[in-house]
Design a protein around this nucleic acid. Sequence first.
RNA 1: GCCCGCCUGGCGGAACGGUAGACGCAGCGGACUUAAAAUCCGCAGCCGAGAUGGCGUGGGGGUUCGAAUCCCCCGGCGGGCACCA
Length: 887
Amino acid sequence: MTNAGLTAAAGPRAEPAAAEGPRYDFRAAEPRWQLAWAERGCFRVEDVPTDGRPKYYVMEMFPYPSGKIHMGHVRNYTLGDVVARYKRARGYAVLHPMGWDAFGLPAENAARERGVHPAKWTFENIANMRIELKRMGLSLDWAREFATCQPEYYRHQQKLFLDFLKAGLVERKESWVNWDPVDGTVLANEQVIDGRGWRSGAPVEKKQLSQWFLSITKYAPELLAALDTLDRWPERVRLMQANWIGRSEGARLRFSLAAPEAGIGQVEVYTTRPDTLYGMSFLAIAAEHPLAAAVAARDPKAAAFIAECRRSGTSEVAIETGEKQGYDTGLRVAHPFIAGASYPVWIANFVLMEYGTGAIFGCPAHDQRDLDFARKYDLDVTPVVLPPAADPASFAVGTEAYVGPGTAYNSDFLDGLDVDAAKRAAIEALAARGVGEGVTNWRLRDWGVSRQRYWGCPIPVIHCAACGVVPVPDDQLPVKLPDDVTFDRPGNPLDHHPTWKHVACPACGKPARRETDTFDTFVDSSWYFARYCSPLADVPVVRAAVDHWMPVDQYIGGIEHAILHLLYSRFFTRAMKETGHIAVEEPFAGLFTQGMVTHESYRTAEGPAGTWLYPEEIEKRPDGTAVHRETGEPIVVGRVEAMSKSKRNTIDPGAIIAKYGADTARWFILSDNPPERDMEWTEAGVAGAYRFTQRVYRMAEALDGTAAADIPTAFGTDGRALRRVTHRTIAAVTEALDSFAFNVAVARLYELANAVSDAEKAAASAEPGLDWARREAVEMLARLSAPMMPHLAEEVMIRLHPGGATLVADLPWPEADPALLVAESVTIAVQIMGKLRGTIAMPPDSPAEQAIAAAEAEPNVAKALEGKRIVKRVHVPNRIVNFVVAG
RNA sequence: GCCCGCCUGGCGGAACGGUAGACGCAGCGGACUUAAAAUCCGCAGCCGAGAUGGCGUGGGGGUUCGAAUCCCCCGGCGGGCACCA
């Protein structure tokens, strides 16, 4: 280590010089208190408590066991721990559990790349991360820990699935998937990058597979409506979910083909604009539409066009370029209202099979995509909605569709109606003819949960040639993953396993095939919060336990899960209610979404992009520039951005805790800024937090000569002032913690520490009662900071009460003495026309006449008022006197 | 394109419509030290020699005795969704 570097200068030394005096030794203290809490079982609660304390369930999103904890975890679990410790002190029985989201692809990748079994890799990672989390001093009930990859967990998930199946909440259907032909697996949309598989790099194909779906769309209306009841969720998360669910009102209508094609006589279309039916100029269907397939069967050009669409997919590239492509099938459809009129049927790349019915009617004048398409292929553009104040004779649509309000025209019986009325009239007319009806459409689609992977929860069904799909009987659960699998070839190892999938049909006993797909890992995380309530039960959840603890009062995690995980959990909870497992519908009464942890990034100057460097590889110069620690070459200090392995701008929490201690890391991560915003991790900031831990400890040490005693009968000026600060701080920190303003709580505690420092200077005067006031202040400093710095708080308390202290973790939250919250004197600002002209000191709650009189007498104010006529005197008690003057 | 959020010193940020910039980081001056670190004392929005002078919360307007805060317009940044029919 070099002493020129900022990093070296800031850290504590391993061996303090003798002259420095004692220092807080976090290396000894933190493990000691962690052990004390564990031995006393401070954070344990019962599945079904009987002690009558009100319950509080706080939980952070459980980690994926990737190997090491990262700063995002530190922030997440620190935030949750502050809430847990604070609520516990406030008298709640707090359930604060931890577990592992342990299934997932990285374990399989490790198996393929390094030959280590996914289970071994996962459990080794868990063991390591558990040690790291324990070093943070979190107030967790570790007795509730589980990993989702344990059969003891996933057997209950299988049971839930079978219950859902029985209740009609599960469907097996064909669906289009992204297929990686090299890896032989289905890819999630996120895993398709520029039309290629993220691992294999092979062009992704669209393929139709039979998959299991959870019927989340059955709950679409209530999942949307209940968002309004989630008043302790961030507004933007509720908005994102509302957009995702995507309710729209429209009509479904059927167009008759002039001549049936392969037995298909009608095309069903969904539209939100039935009022524009008279502006129709074509009908377009998705490439995956059955009618398209029928045409392709006899028309090689159509087949080629469909193949082309399938290659580019409906994602990424095709959408980016935005080029509309179509193929005229030569088929014609009739208009529902205009007798004798017919329109061409196109296959178009911009029509999605997944939304609506996979077919649209094109009204180019009033839809931009339809217009782009019509212009490209020279189709008719007939406006049928006249904008307000536009002239029907001259109004025309050029390159921009008109989508605003207006009056129907060129539309026969709809003419003269506004858009809303025309929609209603059109729907009525469709219904009267029996060719359509008004419907509500949802963007939300059913949740495909089948994955062709090994490291996931097996889907507990058996396929029998005779009986069809047969659920695995309860007494055969769990369907365990086989251990002896190989990863030496692409595809699903479960499918390759020589014996696993071959079973007897539970219904008829004939040879049958086990389902080899496993669940999407989002299934694992959709009910773990319920399992925590009774983690050892031999049923998925014990009703009395979930009835007591659920819903989660405060859930904390990253905004990246704003949609999928939270929506799936909300669905799962409803499905569990329907199948009798739980009483509540909403799993998370309160949600807090934290910001990311960011850091400067560094890279070498050479090359177009340079090479990314880790923070410990560079050395900062006082002028802000940086050089390579070893080679001395100049380094480009890049943007502050989210910590990521690829940018190498990561800070290892383990190293920080080893160097500064858990309390310092926790304190810094809370103090820097509001927790919902992104924070920048800086070495200087951590060092500052570390200095504060030492300072607080020194304050306790400085009181070593004084004894704890009864409250004095009288205090001097300094003592009274200090006590006021102490009790104001109790009130302010309490308020800040209640509102997640942890950075403000930290600021108030710094202020209290500064007041203690002032009192230390005054202590030489030996004012009566001052030592007592100092003891009180330091004790409150410790107890109020205990949710943030729990180890230091214990250490300070044992110093203040040698031999006789109760664990801070067991102490109730301090209460401010209301008498001390009232100031002896208040400063009132005096304004003239809203401009500050002076201040006056008054007794609190002085009457208006007295305050105004004192304000007018203030020299600077009096001078400014000279020769002016006071028109109005505004008095706000204890705050403001404002004079409105004329002349 | 649609929807949402944000914009305050060098930086992170504080501020029930009521003294803008608390608190921290970085900085500057001083004490202690051979020196440094640590610690302690002090300074610190901008302009101004200075003032309880002026100007200041992205820009412009409005409401109000009084606006960082409420309303309208504009700009910038960030996020979500998106051939969604």
